[in-house]
């Protein structure tokens, strides 16, 4: 059980790092286009579409589970100071369970969308060239699914250290 939880946490972390790779790729790809355009008057016409559909979606969706495990999600924290440790734990667990349900719904609907886009073979027409982009629809459901699992694990982790501890270890070890 513990090893399985740790594996999930490591997977979340890895997807987060893939998000970081997307950031690097975005920087290099856009810069390369700017350089080629100004130095050689050569345009890679596909850059805006690749940036929007692949790098941005990978960056936005893949790291979600990792963000949840790192507690990076933003809340207003209005009542935090007034809660006892016990009340806070109850609140944390219910919020995490609710988050899991919402991510689950997002995952479910977005899996459906990704599969429909695949069936159609969604593409964009760029000048005289057709670029297939249906693959890019999978980042969202993958990210949401793992985030749903992560929130479920975190909810139980708040109750049972046997689940909570390995998550903490996996996320914070370097």
């Amino acid at each position: 059980m513990q090893r399985l939880v740790k594996l999930a946490a490591l997977l979340a972390k890895t997807l987060g790092y893939i998000g970081a790779l997307a950031v690097v790729a975005m920087m290099l790809h856009i810069s390369l286009d700017v350089i080629l355009r100004n130095a050689f008057r050569y345009s890679m016409n596909t850059v805006p579409e690749i940036v929007a559909r692949y790098y941005m979606t990978a960056l936005a969706f893949l790291p979600l589970a990792w963000l949840e495990m790192r507690r990076d999600m933003i809340s207003v924290e209005l009542l935090d100071f007034a809660l006892s440790a016990r009340a806070r734990r109850i609140s944390d667990v219910s919020v995490m369970l609710l988050a899991s349900v919402v991510y689950g719904l997002l995952a479910w609907t977005n899996w459906g969308k990704a599969m429909r886009e695949t069936r159609v073979g969604t593409l964009v027409e760029i000048a005289d060239y057709k670029m297939a982009v249906w693959h890019s629809f999978y980042f969202a459901p993958i990210g949401f699914t793992l985030a749903a699992v992560a929130c479920l694990l975190l909810a139980f982790g708040r109750l049972f250290p046997v689940i909570g501890t390995p998550i903490e270890e996996a996320i914070h070890e370097r």
Partner: peptide, 20 residues
């Protein structure tokens, strides 16, 4: 260029069509 025919027109006359 807003589409392939316009890109072909531009290229035929030595201009560079840009997708934007």
């Amino acid at each position: 260029s807003g589409g392939a025919p316009y890109s072909r027109w531009a290229e035929n006359f030595g201009a560079t069509p840009v997708n934007l």
